[in-house]
């Protein structure tokens, strides 16, 4: 396999339904429902998705939700802040484990 993360593959996402169509249908139906306008607007959901896309480091999701955010009227300032939110949670999640490290070290140390 020579090509990982080919942008054109995003348009082939539906092919994941081959050989397991019922599961794919359930997933895509759920996916559509999640992103529909609800208590959160579609624009807010796209910004959350953009942040999560960076947290999970999915290039397909970053492509898709950068475009989606722009199409829903978000601007680069908002989108950059969303990425920082993802980064803060990721960084915070690492850092808070430092408490565990300190507890273990305290126990082991004299």
């Amino acid at each position: 396999m020579s090509d990982y993360y080919n942008p054109a593959d995003l348009n082939k996402f539906a092919e994941i339904g081959k050989d397991a169509p019922e599961l794919a249908t359930k997933f895509f139906d759920y996916y559509s429902a999640v992103f529909a306008e609800g208590e959160l607007t579609a624009r807010e959901k796209a910004l959350i998705a953009l942040g999560v896309a960076h947290a999970v480091q999915c290039p397909y999701c970053i492509d898709a939700y950068t475009r989606s955010c722009l199409e829903k009227g978000s601007h680069l300032g908002e989108m950059t802040e969303a990425v920082h939110v993802a980064n803060a949670i990721r960084g915070g999640a690492s850092l808070v484990h430092g408490i565990q490290m300190r507890k273990v070290a305290d126990k082991l140390g004299m």
């Binding site: 306008e37 607007t41 579609a42 722009l70 199409e71 829903k72 009227g73």
Partner: peptide, 16 residues
């Protein structure tokens, strides 16, 4: 839109 992407839904954009 400010580039090569489609516009927001008009009613949602108007509200915002």
């Amino acid at each position: 839109p400010g580039g090569a992407f489609l516009p927001d839904d008009q009613s949602a954009a108007e509200l915002r």
